[in-house]
Design a protein around this nucleic acid. Sequence first.
DNA 1: CGTTAGCACTCGGAGGTCGAGAGTGCTAAC
DNA 2: GTTAGCACTCTCGACCTCCGAGTGCTAACG
Lengths: 343, 343
Amino acid sequence: MLTRRRASVLRLIIDEYIMTATPVPSEALAHKYALGVSPATVRNDMATLEDGGYISRRHISGGGIPTDQGYRYYVESLMREEDVPVDERLMVSHLFFLVERELEEWNRLAAALLARTLNSVAIVSFPKAARTRLKHIELVALQELLALLVVVLRGTRLRRQLIAFDEAVTQDELNAISNRLNALCEGMTRPQIVACADRLSSQEGGIARAVVQVMEKEDALRYGELCVEGVRHILGQPEFSGGEKTMALLDLLEGGRLVTSILPETVAPDGVQVIIGSENREDAMRECSVVLAGYGVPDEVGGALAVLGPTRMPYDRAVSRVRFIGSLMSDLIGQLYRERRPG
Amino acid sequence: MLTRRRASVLRLIIDEYIMTATPVPSEALAHKYALGVSPATVRNDMATLEDGGYISRRHISGGGIPTDQGYRYYVESLMREEDVPVDERLMVSHLFFLVERELEEWNRLAAALLARTLNSVAIVSFPKAARTRLKHIELVALQELLALLVVVLRGTRLRRQLIAFDEAVTQDELNAISNRLNALCEGMTRPQIVACADRLSSQEGGIARAVVQVMEKEDALRYGELCVEGVRHILGQPEFSGGEKTMALLDLLEGGRLVTSILPETVAPDGVQVIIGSENREDAMRECSVVLAGYGVPDEVGGALAVLGPTRMPYDRAVSRVRFIGSLMSDLIGQLYRERRPG
DNA sequence: CGTTAGCACTCGGAGGTCGAGAGTGCTAAC
DNA sequence: GTTAGCACTCTCGACCTCCGAGTGCTAACG
């Protein structure tokens, strides 16, 4: 446990380092902020902090740099989560209101907002249902032997797939098939549809199997499709101005390995998690921190949103923004999911 | 017009520079390739090329570097488009075959393949119909006052939108509405539906207007959604290892300004275009080249695919790959669009 | 006239030195 | 526990020098 003043010193070092990205000297602290003590005292405190592993120095006569442990302590004990200013709240709510009808836009908006306000990379996953349930199917004739299968899953997820037939079918026939399947399978989970498929004609059974395939693919994913925004920002950060590390990071961000390497196994909705530097699984992320939260309706549907930046990240702002936008998304999704269950 | 040997020298300089990214000295050329003349002669030729504006030198005693004009001459007159090797053709065709049923995957695959084989950024637009025509609509009840409108446009494009009602509606009522609208409006363009909407009940008219809105948004776009892949590769290029230029470029790539700033107004299907360095509209692209082609069915549906790299780009490989994958995509799309018109 | 050999010249970049300045650790006093 | 003073360390930028690559020029040759 740190004394009150040492904690302040650590906090100031972190605040200062986050702003300037340069090692923080003792004198700047004693001078700039009214600590009421002399630089020498601050130096002593800094020596203690260094012994405790909260800060390090690049060279003997360089200022203090927070370590991952220092940031961790800051996030746990020192940081006061910044309130999202009213005008920002209003602005964001308004923007979401504008795209309320456009499901695709929610995530893009969330990602764009996070990326811009925090000058970082933002990753937002499309919502994904815990148990995929069929909502509706639709068959559209394209050619004599080719049709488009549109599958609407619970929670408004949409999938499409081409279906080839052995013999010509008309749109009327397709309508008949889809009506029958809809009547039979609405609200069913994958295993239920599989069981059901046995009792169908071969043609209908074929469609049902295609539907099951679509749902299978959906179930296999841990997260919905990801929306990544703001990659340009990390290049602006001095620690990533170029070189190996940056390449490795971009590899991660682009290669679709995000899910396996950055996002955790599961995300609890509404709790904001912070992963700092070396706490990350990937080597390439060792100088990055991730602030993430889940959103959605527990046990029903959910997704994750995350902000990725250098460890030198304004955690107070990041946490509050991620929390805010996460709860906004939860509300939006919640509206869709409380379907026909008044209350 | 260049003499035969000078053209060869230019070609060799470009080939060499593309490989090594370092200025090409006269001796390397005379020595490495069997030109049959002495370095001094090559030097004279290089002086002529420099006067003609085909190459430049970074400093007085540095080797030759191709200019944009040099690359242009190379692309027009010197380059032999590399044949895509048989095994690569097979591999690519096979990969497309694997995702034939998954419309979303076509573009992603195309972009991923281009990016990987050419070590560049690849941009592929989703196909977009020249004239948006309604294919089918679908209404799915979500809550008492909320429904999901699914719009299938000609060419298998899918859009969705939330619809709020003033009073409760059942799924049966929604089915009735969608059946009526489908019967009435299938295959119609936007103005036709607008005209049609007057003759409808207020409820049906509301849905029709929503459909029109969706189509409007679709018509407003010049290209379909873009799929960008391989951004990491440009960071690997020595000319973009970091700094201002790279930031500016990433800004362009991410900001959705691709369409306005990189892709041209229109793309003719099947013709491969090359835009070199300063020929680009954007300043940030002054050290980049773009190789692009259209794909699709003329006057029906189309999109574009492009490869973006440093001006020091293997044009011969890029042009052939873009052409190859473009024609593959055209074939795939063509199959969908020859709907119910045998022949 | 095109080509070649020889040679002096130029220029960039690596490596080294130097000095200034920042910021510390230590010590001794309060 | 806090403070002042001071010597010490280390980085960083400026400056320099030198090396060598690669050229341009000139003069000779077929």
